[in-house]
């Protein structure tokens, strides 16, 4: 199958006309979020690890950017710095041109772990960020119910997080983050704890929400399919030290559909990404198909399965 695809694949850099037009449109918009020469160094005793080395990148308004890279390339560190949960060693983050310090409600975040407050019911969870913005309780409740309607979970308003499935919890977490009316939504491998089917649903879901409201999304993932399926642009980081390797404009038109995942453009982009990631050659590569397992035969010789 691999050979069959290889010679048929177009160049991933050639954008179809509609995508090119859209890309040009996006690039005319201002940067909402700018990463200005951000460097992060971890010092442990005498070990200095450069996790991020002078990262420079700008995210346009209402753009959906995915960040990919092999494990250890600092993509989680990057998103935590964007959220303000960690400080950059040097460089800064600009929101609408102004430098930010610490976490704030202008940058919402959805974590990989389930982080709904377990002592609050679903509605009160969504109300949390609204109330932190200084809105009184009744109004917050009204807004929260609207958000729950939007994600289709209004009948679970009084349920507690532990009574919901993982996918539902992450949906509520997205609603909770969006309800605090952030400018940017940061997602740190938010769907990676979900099973494959739920993940696909959640991806469509996220794009549906993103179309309807004025939100800019930065999505960290290690799943290349997910990155290509979701993103306008993909920021590829390379490890040791973490640097921007390439910024890929995804040659897929919107709205995205699951069928596009078998299109030539998709496969070409994926092949290129896989090649890039493999070229970094870290020990814990994300696709380990090359690993040869040396296992002695532990069954009877006569007991053949293939």
């Amino acid at each position: 199958m691999a050979d069959h695809v290889e010679h048929a694949l177009p160049d991933y850099r050639i954008l179809p006309p509609d995508v090119a037009a859209r890309m040009a449109q996006i690039k005319q918009r201002d940067y909402v979020l700018e990463i200005d020469r951000v460097t992060k160094v971890f010092t442990q005793k005498k070990n200095r690890t450069v996790a991020l080395d002078a990262i420079e990148f700008g995210v346009h308004r209402r753009e959906l950017v995915c960040v990919v890279g092999p494990s250890g390339c600092g993509k989680s560190t990057l998103v935590r710095i964007l959220a303000g949960l960690e400080d950059a060693t040097s460089g800064q983050i600009l929101m609408n041109g102004k430098p930010v310090r610490g976490p704030g409600s202008d940058r919402g975040m959805v974590f990989q772990k389930y982080t709904l407050f377990p002592w609050l019911d679903v509605c009160r969870n969504v109300m949390f960020g609204i109330e932190m913005g200084g809105v009184d309780r009744l109004e917050a409740q009204r807004q929260a119910m609207q958000w729950l309607q939007m994600i289709g979970l209004e009948q679970f308003a009084t349920a507690f997080p532990h009574q919901l499935s993982g996918g539902m919890q992450q949906r509520v977490a997205i609603a909770r983050a969006l309800a605090a009316s952030p400018r940017v939504l940061l997602m740190d491998e938010s769907f990676s704890a979900l099973d494959a089917q739920t993940r696909t649903k959640m991806q469509n879901y996220l794009m549906e929400i993103w179309r309807k409201i004025d939100i800019t999304i930065v999505f960290i993932t290690h799943d290349l399919d997910e990155a290509i399926y979701l993103a306008d642009r993909i920021l590829v980081l390379k490890p040791n030290p973490g640097r921007v390797e390439e910024v890929i404009e995804v040659p897929l038109s919107r709205p995205r559909r699951a069928e596009q995942m078998t299109s030539d453009e998709f496969l070409a982009t994926k092949a290129h990404l896989e090649g890039l990631i493999r070229s970094f050659g870290t020990s814990d590569d994300m696709d380990e198909e090359d690993v040869k397992i040396d296992l002695p035969l532990l069954t009877l010789v006569t007991d053949q399965v293939e």
């Binding site: 949960l85 976490p103 704030g104 919402g108 974590f111 982080t115 407050f117 949390f128 932190m132 909770r176």
Partner: peptide, 22 residues
């Protein structure tokens, strides 16, 4: 669970409200 504290920070909670609400 520190993730809960971090989550509430990204929702704009800090200081006494972080203490009493989270």
């Amino acid at each position: 669970d520190f993730a809960l504290v971090e989550a509430s920070r990204t929702l704009g909670a800090k200081g006494l409200r972080l203490l009493f609400r989270v």
